[in-house]
Design a protein around this nucleic acid. Sequence first.
DNA 1: CTGTTAGCGCTTTCAC
DNA 2: GTGAAAGCGCTAACAG
Lengths: 351, 351
Amino acid sequence: MNSAEKGRATINDVAAKAQVSKKTVSRVINNETNVKQETRERVQQAMSDLNYFPSLSARSLASKRSYLVAMLYFDLHAHYLHQLQSGLLDHFSTRGYSLLLHPCEGDNDTILQNLERKARYMNIDGFVLVPPLVHMSSLVSLLKQLDKPYVRIAPKEEHDGFSEVLCNDEQAAYELTQHLIQKGHRQIGFVKGAADCLAASKRYDGYLRALKTHHLPLDPTLVFEGDYDFTSGVAAGQHLLSLVRRPTAIFCSNDNMAAGVLNVAHAKGLSVPNQLALAGYDDSPLAQQIWPALTSVAQPGRKMAEVAANKLIDKIENIENAEYPQNIGCDIKYRASTQSELSLASLVEPA
Amino acid sequence: MNSAEKGRATINDVAAKAQVSKKTVSRVINNETNVKQETRERVQQAMSDLNYFPSLSARSLASKRSYLVAMLYFDLHAHYLHQLQSGLLDHFSTRGYSLLLHPCEGDNDTILQNLERKARYMNIDGFVLVPPLVHMSSLVSLLKQLDKPYVRIAPKEEHDGFSEVLCNDEQAAYELTQHLIQKGHRQIGFVKGAADCLAASKRYDGYLRALKTHHLPLDPTLVFEGDYDFTSGVAAGQHLLSLVRRPTAIFCSNDNMAAGVLNVAHAKGLSVPNQLALAGYDDSPLAQQIWPALTSVAQPGRKMAEVAANKLIDKIENIENAEYPQNIGCDIKYRASTQSELSLASLVEPA
DNA sequence: CTGTTAGCGCTTTCAC
DNA sequence: GTGAAAGCGCTAACAG
């Protein structure tokens, strides 16, 4: 009884059935050239006849590649991270890799130890880092020392143009701020995101640029330091909506914080958008589920994931000269929360 | 130059350094008994001196076990699924397994083919099925045929007491409905979840039981068939809030749908909770981010994940007689959306 | 309690 | 274009 009959065919069974050497079967499996078309077909026939599947562990052991990649993250909850996860999963699997999720938790040393152990144990071929981990330099050093390729999503520094993926937050924030200005708003509040985050500062930059373009002064009292959390949005709302010169519009660096501001507005009996225009960022499901629906910026999470996956695999497989989109555009979703015109908005300008 | 010096120590290097056979090293790696304490320590010392890590692919190939498990899911977005994912990740990794995410998409055949391919290619040791996949019988058959253990989260049928993990939705829905009744509500609307889902029917059962206990008649016009989606919540709101005998309270089978109802209430100018009490299910972040904050049931997602992970690994490792919690309890979060008393609620009863 | 032998199923290297 | 031999790093089965 050969192994095929025992339920699992091996490369030897296929080789025997196709009357070739197992090396030839291996060539077919790996889509190598240098196999005559006729031979290739015979092998493929044998594989399907025997219901053959190669064994990952055997090829990993022999080839010293695992076909495993890991996504390194911290605090996976945001809509954005979820989008990335799902996009990475898609594109890695398309190219024959499996995605491992590696949450980085605990203190610095714990994180590094766990990662090294897992990376070496599983011989992980490459890594995708997502914010805010992207900025953990000891982690990046470890990856370099492990000598495995990695790609970073939206890192703040050290751009080499090949190992990171960026999107155009600045432009989106600019356009959204401009939209508010065009609706007649002059007092536009801004709620910042976490300080160590590239996206946060790019969004703020876009806001500033729009003000400048339209010759509006920056009023520092209208800028609130948030941290992307709902509760910091509540704090922002309490602060901004209690000002004597209350803003007529508030742009939040994410939807969670916008929801916080919105709660305060509701509690104060302020009508949105008539007395307060409100915009968020992320276009999370929340944006459509709160009332009124929130104008928000949809980040190209899945597109970024696609680019990240392909960049990483190209590195792993030493494919050079590939072209990738540089600064992936965002998509603004205009909804009810900003859809009121100057006349209404001006009503609430403090006398 | 031995392999240790080339950057990666192998079991042979450890064996040589510790002056034992590699089988003994293997015993230490696998925490087997039958190793003298002194020997064990010598081996451990050698491992750490050489910065040795075993190789997963080598042990998989030799042992025919991959230490890989997969979570089979469809449509991973709900807060609940995310909780499960994160809990599974935790507990599998604690016990030395890595979790693979396997989204099941496409038509029936595609799903089965992809799963079989991946399962056999990676030699996955076990599977966790989460709703609604739990009810896909062809998938369950495939798993049986693959002869690998699986655990199902909240399946509708075929309970064997060992391969599924349940939580007590019925009781939670009962208690929450009772809470509404005690607030004075007599016209309590109910928005059902997806019909093929065990949890959905258990929640409805709890609602019915509470009505019965309190001798309230079931009014079928107050029961709306939703599908867990936000838009079905909007539809439910439009229907229920247009009734002549409008409900004074609505219990939705999840938070998304409650948010939909809430939007309609806002649009109709109905004040929540004063004119309408509203409750959801899942205790997703949304529940705290909408206004007013939503009373909701927190499912024990992480606890269920823990039980599922341990059940599955025990099956994989043939550990018997372990005890597991049977019907894991839910936790009701009472918030503003139901915090008004009879007197107020009765105000809005149509004349 | 420890060691020996023989693979696991594939790829690598090199030969033809 | 194809094949033979060697070996990846570990565990299984058995022996002692």
